[in-house]
Design a binder for these strands. Structure first.
Lengths: 190, 190
DNA sequence: CGGTCTCTTGACGGAGTTCAAAGCTAGTGG
DNA sequence: CCACTAGCTTTGAACTCCGTCAAGAGACCG
């Protein structure tokens, strides 16, 4: 659990006592490559903090095509927030792209931490805000940049990730086909 | 100020006393068509609640091209949140598209309400969450839908707005050129 | 090894852009 | 209230970016 507690400590001021309370509310889980943590249309019962490995969050459109919304590598959160917080059915799927070590929390324990640990509330507020800012940036970038520019930006945003996961997921994240990403990459070498 | 207070009351439970406190912290402002409320690279000193009229938030890319990030019609908020909350320079511009009546708040008064009115904190948390959910949806839609589908979705998301503002701003919001939107529209009539 | 999954390559097609010109509309000043 | 202008929309032709389809080449399992 040290990765999660470390992330908390580096984000907000929190006592060791409270860290233990937080720690007790999370569950350690292991997922193997290709295993799903959440399926579309199910209820998102848990949120996930990735300690080791890599998860992807993706949606499926009306034509059955998958679209990668985000990746979660070490020290990133995943989860369908809307489903988790509003108890609606999920619009996203979450899948492990590598064998992964994850700390997860259910809604009951989440509410308990929110009630009892003020520092946890601050932590989640900062998380949500940063996510809001990041999404704002991404919307602007999708409007402003070409596929090639978005790919370069991705390489900086997720360093080394391109060597860890299949490229087709990166293409999907960028909003292009795997074939076109392949062509971009071969053109870049020259 | 009644539009803002009404919006608060319809979102959270709040006493009339507290409503008065909130009311006292906001400033009524009028902006005429084409007037700017915020410029890129300046500090976003205020957030804006649109009571009448329409605002647009847009970014400018490295080629000098404008990209519409969002519109704010009646009962919608505008503002560069990241700039406002983190006291950074703004990445967006905000401009009135019609003569508009706006209630705005500066950072000092914002912090005051956050400290003293718990219902206001709840209100902002709901606002931010809904914005988070909406942005998530928009990212998925931009990945999943064609320009034509995004335009149809826009017409539902912002009913009647297409009759109020120049189409070139809608095209920019959709991530296409005004010429192509014009072609889409003429093809739709047949 | 054999089969599945992934990446590459190329030909073709369609979606969307660019540029230019002309028609419309709305605001502005006389 | 009209005339003029500036900005907005439409149209069309040529072009670019990117998708689709199909085939083959690696790469990674069991």
């Amino acid at each position: 659990m040290k990765e999660l507690l470390q992330h908390l400590k580096s984000t907000v001021a929190i006592s060791d006592q409270h860290l233990e309370v937080v720690s007790a509310k999370f569950t350690e889980q292991h997922f193997s490559k290709k295993e799903h943590l959440l399926y579309f249309d199910h209820y998102a019962k848990r949120l996930y903090f990735t300690a080791k490995g890599c998860l992807r969050t993706y949606a499926i459109d009306f034509n059955g095509v998958e679209h990668n919304v985000s990746f979660a590598v070490e020290n990133w959160w995943s989860g369908d927030l809307k489903s988790f917080l509003n108890k609606e059915s999920a619009i996203c799927n979450i899948q492990a792209l590598e064998d992964s070590l994850v700390f997860s929390i259910n809604r009951e324990n989440w509410d308990c931490l929110v009630r009892e640990i003020p520092a946890f509330v601050s932590y989640t507020r900062i998380l949500f805000r940063n996510k809001l800012f990041a999404q704002q940036d991404r919307i602007i970038q999708n409007l402003s940049f070409t596929a090639k520019e978005r790919y370069h930006h991705f390489l900086q945003e997720y360093p080394n990730l391109s060597q860890r996961i299949p490229q087709k997921y990166i293409a999907s994240y960028l909003g292009i086909t795997p074939e076109f990403l392949s062509m971009l990459r071969s053109r870049m070498k020259k």
